[in-house]
Amino acid sequence: MAPFDIDSIAGLARLTVSDGEKAALAEDMAAILAFAATLPEADPYTEEAALPLSALREDEAADSDPAPLLCAAPKLREDAFTVPSGGISL
């Protein structure tokens, strides 16, 4: 079983893991993964219960009130949500 590369997984999940946490986490993850590695090989995919076209939503537009949604923003600027600009090329 491949070793658990905490740094690359943490990067994918946008989590930072402190050095102190890393050792404990590595042990925990290894135990969990060993426990999970006992699963046998996968069967090919089969269809499950599917939705017919008629069960889908009708194409009707409705107005919604954006005010409470904008109020929920941790950092608002006029009527837009904001993020820091570093590293974004538009």
Partner: peptide
């Protein structure tokens, strides 16, 4: 882009 921030 808008002055040091990015608006969404």
């Amino acid at each position: 882009h808008a002055q040091g921030e990015t608006l969404a």
